[in-house]
Computed example of a mutant assay.
Amino acid sequence: MGYVRPVNSNSVNPAHPASPAAQASPVDDAGHVILLTTSHRVAPGLLSWTAWRALRDADEVLCADAAHPQLPYVREAGVDVKQAAPTAEELVRACAGGRTVLVIATADGDRPLTDGLARLAGTGRVAMPDLELLPGSYDLPGARLLDLVQVMDRIRAECPWLSRQTHEGLAKYAIEEAYELVEAIEDGERTELREELGDVLLQVVFHARIAEEDPDEPFSVDDVAAAIVDKLIHRHPHVFGDDTAATPEEVKEHWLRTKAEEKRRTSVTEGIPLGQPGLALAAKLASRVRTAGLDVPLPQGEGVGYALLAMAVRAESEGVDPEAALRAAARAYRDAVRAAEA
C-alpha cells in the first residue's frame, strides 16, 4: 500500500477556505507513519532494500515486541530501535513537524494501533500523517511448510500418543490416507482433495520427524526434500540440462533411462512393491515388460486369477489403468445398490 492521506478538517478545500489555524498546520507537517511488516518464515535480517532504507531514514523506529526476531539484526545495522507500544494519539503526536516514525509490526499485527489510527482519521478533526504499509519480507511459495515442521516438532515432544509412534505403527495410516486421497480425486471434491493432500503430507513429515531420532541412521525432512529435489533435477535433463524433449513420450524415455542408471537393477521387476493391489501389480509388471521390449508370454492356468491377469495386461497395453477402471465400475455398482435400497 502506498501513501494514504485521509481527508480531515485541516485539508484545504476550495469550497471552504481553511481557517488561519489550519493554514498554520498544513497536512504536510503532520509527518509520516510507516508500518513495517515482516514474515517469521523468512530468516531474520533478510529484508528488502526498501525496508532497510526506510529503517535508516526514519526519525524514530519503534517496536512493541522486545523479542522480535528482526531486532538484533536491525540494531546490528546501526538502527536505534526503541521498545514502545504507542497509542494512535501518541504516534500522531510523534510525527508532528514532518517527522517519520517507523513501527516494526509485531506478530499479531498491532491491531489496537491500526484500529486507533483508522478511528482518528475517521473523525476528521485530526491532522493525520501519511500512512504507509511497507512489507519488509514476504512468504515464499511453500513457506507454510515451515509451520508444519515446527508444529510437528512440538507435538512429537509433548503429545502422549504421537510421541510414542513408530514407522511400523504408522504404516497403515499412510496406506489409508493414500486411498482417501485417491477417492477425493475420483469424487472431484476440491475441498476434500485439499484436506486429503494435507493428511498425506502429514504422514511424510511425521515419518521424517521420527527418523531424526534414529540412533544409527538419522535423517530429517530437509534430507527427504533434498533427495527428491536431486532426483527430479537428474531425471529431467530436458528441463535442467542440455537434453531436449518435445513430447510426453520423450520425457518418459528420459525418466526411464536416468532411473535405470540410478538403480542399476538386474531385473525389470525390481522395485515393484508386491503388497499393492493385485490389478495394479499386474499392470505395473506388464508396463515394465512392455517398456523393456521383452517378449514374455502370460502364464496359463485355470481360475479367475489368470483371467484377471490377462485382462489387466490387456488394459495396460491399451492405456487403461485396470485398478481405476475396476474402482469406477465398483462405484457404479454401489450406486445401483443404494438405488435398490431406496
Rank of each mutant, 00 (worst) to 15 (best):
G2F: 14
G2W: 12
P6G: 12
V7P: 01
N8E: 07
N10H: 14
V12E: 15
V12Y: 14
P14D: 00
H16I: 13
P26A: 01
D28I: 07
L35P: 01
L35V: 12
T37S: 09
H40A: 07
A43E: 11
P44N: 07
G45S: 14
L47N: 03
W49D: 14
A54W: 01
R56E: 11
R56N: 12
D57A: 12
L62W: 01
L62Q: 04
H68F: 14
P69V: 10
Q70N: 01
G78T: 02
G78N: 11
V81H: 08
L91N: 10
A96Q: 13
A96R: 14
T100L: 10
T100I: 06
I104D: 03
I104Q: 04
A105Y: 05
G116R: 01
R119Y: 06
A121C: 02
G124E: 03
A127M: 04
M128R: 00
M128S: 01
D130G: 15
P135Y: 05
G136M: 08
D139W: 10
L140F: 15
P141R: 06
A143D: 10
R144A: 13
L146N: 04
Q150M: 06
W161R: 14
S163E: 08
R164N: 13
Q165N: 08
H167S: 11
E168Y: 01
A174C: 09
I175E: 03
I185Y: 08
I185T: 09
E195Y: 11
V204D: 02
H207Y: 14
E212V: 07
D214K: 07
F219Y: 09
D222K: 09
A225V: 13
L232Q: 05
I233K: 13
D243L: 04
T247L: 09
H254G: 01
L256A: 08
R257Y: 13
R264N: 12
R264P: 04
S267W: 02
P277G: 08
G278S: 08
L285Y: 04
V289L: 05
R290T: 02
T291E: 14
V296E: 02
P299D: 10
G305W: 05
M311Q: 14
M311L: 13
E316N: 00
S317E: 12
P322D: 00
A332R: 15
A332Q: 15
D335N: 10
